[in-house]
């Protein structure tokens, strides 16, 4: 993976549209409902209608296209491959539907993240996780873990790419251990540094 996963959060696009101002919980419920509808409602017409809905919402939110479409190329390729495969096994309509459904879901997810500040999303997850405090998981910790998770994906993608380059430079590309072991050791080292940094910033003290 050469292209870094840009991360859905951090792709927030400041704005004042209805979607920006809508409560986070409402957006997440809408996203969940759309996801479910896309899976449950069969047929190409419904699939195209779903895609049109998401494209319309993106226009309404005035999110620039490059914000939501960044990193979309692999999804488009997957969608095309999925469609082509279904066509090959003799069901072109289902292939087209599957491809459109996939695009709809990914665009909808990107739209929610483009119109939602990461800390608002964090706050929503934290609220939802409040009952977990009864089993020893404070809600702030849950929210922090989510945020840290999203922040770490691009870092890891870069680590994996660098490790692969190093393995290739040393002629190890055929041994998966030479590729994965250094990446994993660095990853754990990174996690521990992050843990130290969290402790240094007083997180976990309260």
């Amino acid at each position: 993976m050469r292209a870094p996963w840009a991360g859905p959060l951090g792709l927030h696009h400041p704005g004042r549209s209805v979607l920006h101002r809508a409560p986070v919980a409402a957006k997440l419920v809408a996203l969940a409902a759309l996801s479910l509808a896309v899976v449950l409602v069969r047929g190409l017409t419904a699939a195209v209608a779903g895609l049109a809905l998401v494209v319309g919402a993106t226009a309404l939110a005035r999110v620039p296209w490059h914000r939501t479409t960044r990193g979309l190329l692999p999804v488009v390729l997957t969608a095309v491959a999925l469609g082509a495969y279904q066509t090959w096994v003799g069901d072109p309509a289902r292939g087209a539907e599957a491809a459109v459904d996939l695009l709809t879901l990914v665009l909808a997810g990107s739209l929610v993240t483009a119109t939602t500040r990461a800390d608002d999303l964090l706050a929503a997850v934290t609220r939802a996780a409040r009952p977990l405090r009864h089993v020893g998981l404070p809600p702030e910790t849950v929210g922090l873990a989510v945020s840290l998770f999203l922040r770490t994906v691009p870092v890891l993608v870069r680590t994996v790419a660098e490790t692969r380059d190093a393995a290739r430079a040393r002629g190890f590309e055929r041994d998966p251990r030479a590729l994965v072991v250094p990446a994993a050791v660095r990853m754990v080292g990174h996690a521990r540094s992050t843990g130290d940094a969290l402790a240094a910033r007083g997180l976990g003290d309260d």
Partner: peptide, 29 residues
């Protein structure tokens, strides 16, 4: 007890599973 390190390890391994999932998959049909 190092709650910060545990949170970081949990989040990092979650991100690692995601990174593994983002590597292009092998289709099986």
């Amino acid at each position: 007890r190092r709650p910060g390190t545990d949170v970081a390890l949990v989040a990092t391994f979650a991100a690692f599973v995601a990174a593994c999932a983002l590597v292009p998959p092998i289709p099986t049909g």
